[in-house]
């Protein structure tokens, strides 16, 4: 079978025929973008790895609910976005009750980046992004790094375009101040 198919065709194959190979191809198509989004939001590899896997497991269970009304990427990013924010919430509660520090263990990233240059870049990026509140961080990442339009971000986050623009604006200001001080 020729698997040079669009994402919608792959999704249809999986929904109608439970074709596991189609699902694996979907994973390969989206794994990098989802992982990147999780890594930028969460700041370390092990959390990003866990949430990325959860996204695809949820996709496996819930893809039959996809109505082909919006873009599949938007639908997948909605799941990603919700799981990431839930994960952050749960982690905060866990940390609160264990009296641990909320500092991210950036040495955790040794599995995903190996050379020093890239490690330093990732450390610096995480340091800047983790200073933003989660929802602002999310909007900034989706707009600046994932290159989504405000309309798409609005569909993902269920927030108005006006509020998103304001959120992005505040995030940009803060980032510029942080980079000034670096």
């Amino acid at each position: 079978m020729n698997y040079n198919l669009s994402e919608n065709e792959l999704a249809k194959l999986f929904i109608e025929n439970k074709d596991e190979r189609a699902f694996t191809l979907l994973i390969k198509q989206y794994q990098q973008s989802i992982y990147w989004h999780c890594l930028r939001m969460l700041g370390n590899h092990s959390d990003a790895d866990e949430v990325t896997q959860q996204v695809f497991i949820t996709l496996y269970k819930k893809l039959y609910t996809y109505k082909f009304e919006s873009k599949l990427s938007t639908w997948i990013f909605t799941i990603t976005s919700n799981l990431v924010l839930n994960y952050i919430k749960k982690k905060k509660i866990k940390v609160f009750f264990s009296f641990d520090d909320l500092e991210h263990d950036l040495s955790d990233n040794s599995d995903i980046v190996q050379d020093i240059d890239n490690k330093m870049k990732l450390e610096k990026l995480n340091k800047i992004l983790q200073k933003l509140p989660e929802k602002q961080r999310q909007v900034f990442i989706l707009r600046n790094f994932d290159d989504l339009s405000y309309e798409e971000i609005s569909e993902i986050t269920k927030t108005s375009v006006g509020a998103l623009k304001a959120s992005y604006h505040h995030a940009q200001k803060k980032i510029m101040e942080l980079m000034q001080n670096e």
């Binding site: 994973i27 992982y35 050379d115 870049k121 990026l125």
Partner: peptide, 22 residues
């Protein structure tokens, strides 16, 4: 900021990820 984002990730991780998920 965009340069910081250009990070080379270990591609072996993405080769193994679909297997782990399945």
């Amino acid at each position: 900021l965009k340069e910081l984002n250009k990070i080379q990730l270990n591609q072996e991780y993405f080769v193994n990820l679909p297997v782990k998920i399945n």
